[in-house]
Design a protein around this nucleic acid. Structure first.
Lengths: 231, 231
DNA sequence: GGCGGTTCTCAGCAACCTCTCAGAGTCGGC
DNA sequence: GCCGACTCTGAGAGGTTGCTGAGAACCGCC
């Protein structure tokens, strides 16, 4: 998965910390990111650079995300939008926005989730032709169908197991530290330590590597984990 | 479902919010959409681009939908029209105009309904040769006949159950979130939460999956629902 | 107005998932 | 082989999500 052609993203969030986190993550994923801190700046930047997608925080001091989107649409712009929204209210307001291929992510989210949603929206709106299937040996993960198979037979994963596997597969062949995994797969406000990663790696191995002689998830002692075909 | 050949649609509605919603939905469904905000613009655009179908709001400030349609007919145009109309009055007025294969949709409607009507009109007028039968395993939904069968025997569904099943079948193999389902199957002004979707999924399962060993409607915990044969 | 069918809400229950913790197991360095 | 550090695993508390049945509100139809 990923942004092969370097799509241009506009990111608008007034929280400095979160914004630079997201900017780094999206940039690292291959996107060409412009980051701004307010609704007005977002409108201006969208007009100037006409990005391929906009990530919009809903709660912003001057113009909120909905208003920015509404104005863009009124101007005739059809750029797809991914909203960042708090859990409490707003869910009803967000309804009606998943139509044109837009989407929304509820705070606190994981980086991996935002990236996955962004990719999915771009895939749906046709700006990116990347397939949605990740593969390693006889293991397949189809993101559209949200389906995982090993050797052709279905594997039933919980949400967190699924997200972890997707992150590992998206980076197969690369060793990932527990800290990296925590940062990408768990919500950004998660307070625990790396022990939870060991537990979930265990869950995945039980469901994927058990009863199969070829192990795909390998431990690099003192470093982290990696998914690849040969040991 | 689907507009395989990208038919050209003209959409006229003065409500900015609704117009961009509809534009996004129709475009996402594969139509090539031009959107305008008034009756005069609609007339001008129809003359220039001669679209395959026009979606006309009845209530518009300068020229109302009826008048636009009348003038088009006077000019000799036979382009099919789908009217958008409020519930209260007008229903009888619209009747007189729906003769030439035209149709009308009462506000507030669901996106799925508008898309289905649009598809149906184009199918009837021959601009689109798409079949109207959706299938999954031994389950069939015939949209023209408005008929659902499982294993050859009829299944009796309420309107909402039918719409929900059609949306699921039209997207079979793809996971749909409760928000997406709400957006497409329920009226756009519906205020409730996703609980209603669970209830209706339950109704459908009782009527479709009961007494049959092959279940077709599957729950993806934390994500949504999907219709497919195995799994 | 009464009736059957439909839509929607709600609360209790069941199933599932997340995360913590402690003890057992494993590895590498010396 | 021994030690310390790292990793794996199982059990379980607590929280979340989805399912279901009951019933209230609504509608069109007679």
């Amino acid at each position: 998965m990923g942004a092969m052609t370097g799509e241009r993203l506009l990111l608008a969030d007034d929280d400095d910390n979160l914004r630079s986190m997201l900017e780094a993550a999206l940039r690292h994923h291959g996107y060409d990111v412009t980051a701004v801190a307010s609704g007005r700046e977002a409108l201006a930047a969208a007009g100037e650079s006409s990005p391929d997608l906009i990530v919009l925080d809903v709660m912003m001091p001057d113009l909120d995300g909905f208003e920015v989107c509404r104005r863009l649409r009124t101007e005739g712009s059809r750029v797809p939008v991914v909203f960042l929204t708090a859990r409490d209210a707003t869910e009803d307001k967000v309804r009606g926005l998943t139509l044109g291929g837009d989407d929304y992510v509820v705070k606190p989210f994981s980086l991996d989730e935002l990236v996955a949603r962004t990719d999915a929206v771009l895939r749906r709106t046709g700006a990116q032709k990347d397939g949605s299937v990740l593969r390693c040996a006889d293991l397949e993960l189809d993101d559209d169908a949200h389906r995982v198979t090993r050797g052709g037979s279905d594997v039933n994963l919980s949400p967190t197991e699924y997200n972890l596997l997707r992150f590992l597969l998206a980076n197969q062949g690369r060793v990932l530290s527990k800290a990296q995994i925590l940062d990408h797969v768990w919500n950004y406000d998660f307070g625990g330590d790396g022990g939870i990663v060991e537990t979930y790696i265990g869950y995945l191995r039980k469901k994927l590597d058990n009863g199969d002689d070829v192990r795909l998830i390998h431990t690099i002692r003192g470093v982290g984990y990696v998914v690849r075909e040969q040991g």
